[in-house]
Design a protein around this nucleic acid. Sequence first.
DNA 1: TTGTAGGCGTTATCAA
DNA 2: TTGATAACGCCTACAA
Lengths: 348, 348
Amino acid sequence: MSDADVSMTAAKRPGRVTIVDVARHAGVSKSTVSLVLTGSPLVAEETRNRVSRAMSDLGYIYHRGAAVLRGAQSSIIGMVINDLSNPFFHELAIGIERACQSGSYVTFIANTGENSARQTQVIRSMREHGAAGLVICPALGSSAAELNALTEGVPVVLAMRRLPGLRASIVAPENRLGARKATAHLIGLGHRRVAFIGGMPMVVRDERLSGYADALGEAGLPFDPALVADVLPTRAGGASAVPGLLGLADPPTAALCFNDVVAIGVIRALTALGRTAGRDFAVIGFDDIEDARHMVPALTSVAVEGQSLGERAAHLLMRQIASGTILAETQLGPADLVIRASCGTSAA
Amino acid sequence: MSDADVSMTAAKRPGRVTIVDVARHAGVSKSTVSLVLTGSPLVAEETRNRVSRAMSDLGYIYHRGAAVLRGAQSSIIGMVINDLSNPFFHELAIGIERACQSGSYVTFIANTGENSARQTQVIRSMREHGAAGLVICPALGSSAAELNALTEGVPVVLAMRRLPGLRASIVAPENRLGARKATAHLIGLGHRRVAFIGGMPMVVRDERLSGYADALGEAGLPFDPALVADVLPTRAGGASAVPGLLGLADPPTAALCFNDVVAIGVIRALTALGRTAGRDFAVIGFDDIEDARHMVPALTSVAVEGQSLGERAAHLLMRQIASGTILAETQLGPADLVIRASCGTSAA
DNA sequence: TTGTAGGCGTTATCAA
DNA sequence: TTGATAACGCCTACAA
């Protein structure tokens, strides 16, 4: 009880207004203010109005941290995204956010940039801030064991990318089926040499590659490793694969790309080499980002509905938070081929 | 791998590990644990190790909310973005996030979708969660008075969009100058009828329109309201303006677009009408989003460096948070014309 | 170098 | 219907 403290208090910051201040101003106890805040029906109409007026008079702001400390449910949902510069993940994030808003949760977002060390940091940080649940698109090289430890006690939904061994729910598209349909379409157009471009070693890529192989097998075509280009799933990665593929002794006439961003890079590289996608070379992407339909030529792609995938992930998570259970449930979304100009109408 | 639901036993509700648990496990007092947490040099090496081991043994997670309640600095920075589906704002957000990370702040993001009621909600929510500062791209129709009340006591930096009357710092590009340079370039190519497409009534749009008018005036050309299309700053908005403009008695041969997204819509509409941007009609965008350089034709645009703008906004904010002051400082960033194919090399 | 005693803003429990 | 009081997990004194 020092005098110094008292004078400091008097000169305190733009004094944070607390329920005690509100209570004094309204002439009630702080318990009553709390009852008003939590919307209790026990408080008299007259009193409620007086308290509400006091709150706006004083510019009171609810201190959620204190409430959570006392035991209230946290309303924070954390989103951990591997690559926000890919428009697809951005669409996914919008969907998650929309659903969270309608459930009156607040989203926390972090971009890991495929860096698993950074991912560890941000997940820890979100937990320190009391996140009630997490939607994670794991960065490349994530360790399931580490993530399990890090997310102990909170529900987690993986979006798009599975991570074998992780105790979490999963929302993802039918990658294998989608890739099979796309490849079959190219084969149906008369292509016999179809490349698969892009993607790093991880489940999504393996699934899409399997679908590609499925379609080749069904058509009696050989799986030629020379036609599979392991490049970064970026525009630059896609572009970098093209010269090598076209320089093969028996070059491909079509390609299924790991995602739309890669496809955009491929189309750009083709253009630079004087070829036209959809006429000289068929290109199909994956994800069907919004840009796909606005490109020239418009990009044929496998639509996975990023926004609604995000919404479903968020709903699945919110359900677990509300029920206090942690599930390991898998929801598969559609992957439908949307045919546009970039794959042409028949083999060149 | 079945997708059947596997529910794990949930909710060991009363099981939060606190510093008291850590202290007991390590055989020290909770103050000592606190000292270790805050990195105090006062604690013995041996003790520190024992405590650290106890923390990882028990899976302890720091409770930042409790620390903030006690008086620690909040490490949350809120980003309030008007339209995350525009790649430009996404680049801005990445820049903000990167800077915040390097300052060991955590970002909170919310997309208002140009809805000012929603903006009020999310700002209130961020404050309830103890945000130390806010970066805001105000939604259309924001009220300065309301925002002033809502952000009382925390530093705010407006990014891109000013809001007259708001007590806040501002980081924005030289819109007027950039628009003037772009328009002058079109005029220099021989165009005499230059349209301005897109944008809603707000400061950014007024600035860019003023720059456009400046350049017309300098060249002795008239400002013709018929050439100014007030459409939504979206792809669809841009596309919708084209037929009307081309149908004028004395149609434009070039257009400066409010932003790149609008320009993309314009180019698409031109293509649909059998015209080619850069050959039959010159198009310049604004912002220079990453996609601009990958389009066909590549989009001439006014580069405003979204990521570095975001970084500067974040730095300005963090400086204010650290110093405990609230400034109203304006920082103007560059707006440089990047010439690519979409504006052609001479008037058609 | 470590331990003890509050108190931050809120809510839950009990009384009144 | 409202009020007093005790936590929640952490940090800042101050004492040992």
